[in-house]
Structures are given as C-alpha cells and as structure tokens.
C-alpha cells in the first residue's frame, strides 16, 4: 500500500495535468501533425508559426488589451467602493446602518446568471453596449469583499478614529495612513481575486459586446475562427499564450496558494 500510493498519485496527477501539457505541445504542431497516424504528442518539427498566425490572422492582441483594461478598471473601482463601504459600516453609527448592511450583503443570494436578461436590458437602455463600463458594470459590487474588509477594519477600535478626528485628522487620511497599511494583505489578495475574476468572466462580456473590437479575450478566444476549420495550431497557441503567465504564477506561489485556501475557508 505504501508503495502503490505515490505511483497512483503520480499517474492521477499526470492525467489531470495532461490537457495543459498537450495544449502546450500542440501549440508547436504543424497542420499535418494533427492528422498524422499514429497521433503525435510532440511536433515532428516544432514551429512558432502558430503564434504569429494567432496574432496576425485574428484580433487576439485587441482582445487581450480590452481584457487588461477592463480587469484593471474593474478592480480599481470595485476595491475603492468596497473599502469605502466597509469603512463607513465599521466606523460610523447612523440610522438604518444594519439594515443597509444586510441589504448589500444579501445580494449574494441572487445568482448573477439569473439576472442576465434584465441587466442586459438595463445596460442597453443606458447605452452602454460595447463600452468598457458596460463590461465591468455588474462586477463593481462585491459583497464578499465588503464583508471581508470590514472584518479587518473591525480589529481597529472606533475610539482610535474618534481620537484621530478630534486631533484634526480627516477620514481619508485616517483610512490611507492607518487602516490600509494594516489591512494590506487582505486588500492585495482581494485585488488579485478581482482582477482574475473580471479577466476570466465570460457570459456577461459575451452579451454586452457586439463589435469585434470590444470583445474581451475570454470571449474572443472562442471565436478566433481557427478551430471551426479544424485549424487547431493557432487556437492552441492562443490558449497557451493566455494560460502560461498564470501557470507560472501558480507554480511559483504554490505554497502561498495552499495556505490562502486553508486559512480563508476553514477560518483558522
């Protein structure tokens, strides 16, 4: 049993990782490599032409820049709103505070997918189809972020803020010079999560973009026009290009990722 376990684990993990390895390898295939019999795992003569074709014969570069712009914009606005909201709910006492807080957090109970039709109509009325603002609009409110940042802010007693205000410190200065530095960890984690979340979003960007020039890369990658013609090389190249930076980050940060999952979801 002791000897079989590593063997089984290795076999299992190789099966799991196979699609990634194959995509990487296939991105260097020539057209005939895909149809050769018996099938190939490695190219007969590796070629970079799939990568150049993916860029030259499709709008991949444009899709990529749309995604980078919307993910950056979305992350900045989303975090600003989350921090501001969490701050207000932690350090201010005002009438109806708890009700309003519950109202914001309870939006978690409404699955975004079921709201697609009405949200689409709203965005169309506002004339935001084919705009960056339209693409990020439904990701700007993040109840889980507000909740988590508030948990961090709660560690600071509200007497600190009162004392600071009496000494003539403004709210914004208190927030920037004291609160944000101590909650740096959670803010960075949430920023990364927001960025990848918005970057990887698929269904909503698909619905609110009609013009090809406004498509994000996750939508665009399914419509490059190669795989429909069984021209798989450039399609695999585009996928490889998109996943490689994230894969490298995951491998380098693998210890941190394991830790963050265990602390975030078991509450220890």
């Amino acid at each position: 049993m002791k000897k079989i376990t590593p063997l089984l684990a290795t076999l299992f993990s190789l099966i799991v990782v196979f699609p990634i390895v194959y995509s990487f390898s296939a991105s260097f295939f020539s057209y005939t490599d895909f149809t050769s019999i018996p099938p190939r795992f490695f190219s007969s003569q590796p070629t970079f032409s799939n990568y150049t074709r993916a860029f030259l014969e499709s709008n991949l570069a444009g899709f990529l820049s749309n995604s980078l712009i919307t993910a950056t914009m979305g992350t900045l606005i989303r975090l600003s709103i989350s921090i501001l909201t969490a701050y207000t709910f932690t350090f201010f006492t005002f009438k109806g505070r708890d009700v309003l807080f519950v109202l914001i957090i309870a939006t978690m109970l409404l699955p975004g997918d079921a709201l697609l039709i009405e949200n689409f109509i709203t965005i169309r009325h506002l004339g935001l189809i084919d705009t960056y603002l339209g693409i990020i609009s439904t990701s700007l409110l993040a109840p889980t972020h507000i909740f988590m940042i508030r948990q961090y802010f709660k560690m600071v007693s509200s007497e600190y803020r009162e004392a600071a205000i009496i000494e003539g410190c403004s709210d914004s200065r208190f927030l920037i010079t004291l609160l944000l530095p101590i909650s740096q960890g959670v803010v960075i984690t949430l920023a990364l999560q927001s960025f990848t979340g918005i970057f990887n979003d698929y269904l909503w960007p698909l619905l609110v973009t009609n013009k090809e020039s406004m498509r994000t890369v996750q939508v665009g990658i399914t419509m490059l026009g190669f795989s429909e013609n069984l021209d798989y090389g450039p399609q695999f190249a585009a996928i490889t290009l998109l996943m490689t930076p994230v894969l490298i980050a995951f491998i380098l940060l693998n210890k941190n990722i394991k830790e963050s999952v265990s602390t975030r979801f078991t509450g220890r």
Binding site: P6, A9, T10, F12, S13, L14, V16, V17, P19, I20, Y22, S23, A26, F199, N200, Y202, Q218, V219, I221, T222, S227, Y232, Q235, F236, I239, L242, M243, V246, L247, A249, F250, I251, N254, I257, K258
Partner: peptide, 28 residues
Amino acid sequence: KLASLNQVFMFLPMAVAMSSSMMMFKMM
C-alpha cells in the same frame, strides 16, 4: 518532493480560465 509535485499538478487546472479549458476539451 514527489508528493508536492503531485499536489501542484492537481491544482494547476485552476490556473486555466473556463473558456480556454472548454476550447481545449472541444479540440481534444
């Protein structure tokens, strides 16, 4: 070492976005 390599392989699919993964499956 082998165990931690196995672990990395197991969670790597997380690094691939949904639409890319589905395109991979479609072609494979």
